[in-house]
C-alpha cells in the first residue's frame, strides 16, 4: 500500500501507516520528490511513528529525500521516531546529524513554520 501524502497548506505530510518494504521506501522517496515540485511545497513532514525499524536502507533513503528537498529550496523534518527505534539507530551507528527531526507532527509543523518565517525574513531583509 503506497504511503498517503497529504497537502497541508504549503507543506506535504507523508504519514507512514505500517512497516515498509525497501520497494515501498523507494516509492515514497520518488513520490515526495515529484510532489514537492508539483505542489511547490515549502516543507515536507515524514511521520515515521508506525515504522517498526529504521535500518541502514530506510535511514539512507530518508536522508536522500531530506537533502534533495533542501536542494530544491524546501525543508524536510522527520517526526515520530519511536524511542526503541531511535536507540537501535544510535547503537547501529546510523547518524542523521544534518537532518531535522521533531517529536511529533505538531512540533514538526511548528518547526517548518519557524523555518519558512525565518526564510521570509531573510528574503525581505
Amino acid at each position: 500500500m503506497p504511503v498517503p501524502i497529504l497537502k497541508q497548506g504549503h507543506y506535504l505530510v507523508a504519514s507512514i501507516q505500517d512497516a515498509l518494504s525497501d520497494g515501498e521506501v523507494l516509492e515514497l522517496q520518488e513520490n515526495l520528490l515529484k510532489q514537492i515540485g508539483d505542489f511547490r511545497a515549502r516543507g515536507i513532514i515524514v511521520d515515521v511513528t508506525a515504522m517498526d525499524v529504521i535500518d541502514s536502507f530506510a535511514s539512507r533513503s530518508l536522508r536522500t529525500v531530506a537533502l534533495t528537498t533542501r536542494l530544491r529550496g524546501a525543508e524536510m523534518v522527520i517526526v515520530g521516531i519511536q524511542p526503541d527505534v531511535a536507540s537501535a539507530m544510535v547503537q547501529f551507528g546510523l547518524l542523521m546529524d544534518d537532518i531535522n527531526t521533531a517529536l511529533n507532527l505538531e512540533e514538526g509543523l511548528e518547526f517548518l513554520d519557524r523555518w519558512t518565517a525565518e526564510r521570509a525574513d531573510a528574503d525581505g531583509g
Binding site: V53, D55, Q91, F92
Partner: peptide, 17 residues
C-alpha cells in the same frame, strides 16, 4: 523487551536484505 526486539528486528532486516 520492546527495545531488545527492535534491535533484533533491525539486525534481521540487514542480513535478510
Amino acid at each position: 523487551s520492546r527495545s531488545e526486539a527492535t534491535l533484533l528486528a533491525t539486525a534481521i532486516s540487514e542480513v535478510a536484505r
